[in-house]
């Protein structure tokens, strides 16, 4: 295999960029699932975030406002899910799937007059001469702010879930909502907040697609990224830093296989394309062959609706 043409620094840098959308969406979904809610509508919230982010950026001329718009769009859509599952007690799996279908339709409706338009650009943060360092330059100092934000978010969420009072309450709600309720915690409120956060993060991920990575609005542009984000949460056994690893693995392999092709590698690309999924299956098999469901790390109340009167 001839990898001499490939610049490792550029490769690592582009895998970090490629994994930002799925990383953001997966982090949001992680928090949602930690609170005991399974929202399968990530794909729908992402694509709505992609289009609302694009619209906000296009009209305001500011990419930052675009990301705010994307987060708001994703969060707004997630509130429909919150209303249906937390107050009307609808089935979470069915509602989540419906949310994806609805989101895709809504996004193409909203985006109709924005096809072919160009958004304001999101530039790289200026690190001056640091960006010209070999390897370290492109990897650490050659990105736009969203890339740094996504990595910081991993640390912040990890801290929140394990070190803060709010995080412990959220996890308690996700592990045993009846016990949390009897202690006086507002299960519904916590879950609605988590769902809203998850929607905002998915929306941010979508906005990154339409504002930075592609950058334009095209119908159906998330092309399954939301489902990969869902898979990564399981792959990471609900741990933030493993989500980062998983996202880089998925993003990394998709970039690596494109780069290897471009460099004329002889390895059949099919093997590379399926490798993240193979690894996911492997990880799941290894983890679930452990002692119990607990070793998998799934919140015990995941996907169960809560009703105080029960």
């Amino acid at each position: 295999m001839d990898l001499s043409h490939m610049n490792a620094g550029v490769l690592v840098a582009s895998l970090m960029v490629a994994s930002v959308p799925i990383l953001l969406a997966a982090l949001g979904e992680l928090v949602v699932e930690k609170s005991g809610v399974l929202n399968l509508g990530v794909e729908g919230m992402m694509i709505v975030g992609a289009v609302t982010g694009f619209i906000a950026a296009f009209h305001s001329g500011s990419a930052v406002l675009g990301f705010v718009g994307g987060a708001a769009g994703g969060a707004a859509l997630s509130m429909i899910f919150a209303l249906l599952t937390q107050f009307l007690m609808a089935n979470q799996v069915a509602t989540g799937l419906a949310l994806t279908l609805f989101g895709q339709g809504l996004a193409s409706l909203l985006g109709q007059s924005y096809v072919g338009q160009k958004p304001p650009l999101t530039g790289k943060l200026p690190f001056g001469p640091l960006a010209d360092l070999p390897f370290v330059g492109p990897v650490l100092f050659g990105h736009d702010w969203v890339v740094y934000f996504s990595v910081l978010a991993v640390g912040a969420i990890s801290w929140f879930l394990t070190r803060s009072r709010g995080g412990l309450v959220l996890r308690a709600v996700g592990e045993n909502h009846d016990a949390a309720h009897s202690l006086g915690y507002k299960v519904r409120l916590v879950r609605v907040a988590a769902i809203g956060f998850g929607g905002a993060m998915a929306g941010l991920g979508g906005a990154y697609l339409s504002l930075v990575r592609v950058p334009q609005w095209t119908e159906g542009m998330t092309a399954g990224a939301g489902w990969i984000a869902l898979a990564i949460v399981v792959f990471a056994s609900w741990r933030p830093w493993r989500v980062l690893m998983g996202a880089w693995l998925f993003g990394g392999i998709s970039v690596l296989q494109l780069n290897m092709q471009a460099a004329g590698s002889a390895i059949p690309v099919q093997y590379l394309s399926m490798s993240p999924y193979l690894i996911t299956i492997l990880v799941l098999v290894i983890m679930s062959s452990g002692r119990s469901r607990a070793s998998l790390g799934a919140p015990a109340s995941l996907g169960q609706n809560f009703h105080a009167a029960r």
Binding site: S14, V214, G264, V269
Partner: peptide, 27 residues
């Protein structure tokens, strides 16, 4: 010529990534 096959007709993110990979390779 450098050739990249992306196994889809329509995936804007992947098409953009493939373009960047080709640019990285000096195309």
């Amino acid at each position: 010529i450098a050739v990249v096959m992306i196994s889809t007709w329509f995936d804007p993110a992947k098409e953009a990534d493939a373009t960047k990979a080709l640019l990285d390779q000096g195309c």
